[in-house]
């Protein structure tokens, strides 16, 4: 396999990993399992409600920066970065 193919595969793996987390926090914790999670509380928040209105958004932000950081590493590793 060529370097370009390896780079692309590593990219796809990273994207899939990130999107799994993206799906779990929003659709999973915020919608599908929100009612069950609501029996757990953090302060005044029921956990499912917290994920739907706060937690998922914080996770999205962290995910994008994690993705950007890992991609920059991959760019350098496969020597396809811009500098």
């Amino acid at each position: 396999m060529s370097d370009a193919q390896k780079y692309w595969q590593a990219n796809i793996r990273l994207v899939i990993g990130c999107l799994v987390v993206w799906f779990v926090v929003s659709f999973g914790c915020g919608i599908l399992f929100a009612q069950q999670l609501n029996s757990i509380r953090i302060g005044g928040y029921q956990l499912g409600f917290w994920f739907a209105q706060q937690g998922s958004i914080y996770t999205f932000v962290a995910l994008i920066f994690f993705y950007a950081w890992r991609m920059n590493q991959l760019d350098r590793k496969f020597n396809v970065n811009e500098d």
């Binding site: 929003s26 915020g30 919608i31 739907a52 209105q53 998922s56 958004i57 999205f60």
Partner: peptide, 12 residues
Amino acid sequence: SVYLMGWTGGYC
């Protein structure tokens, strides 16, 4: 919550 998650999750 659909609007909160929907209008932010798109950025991922």
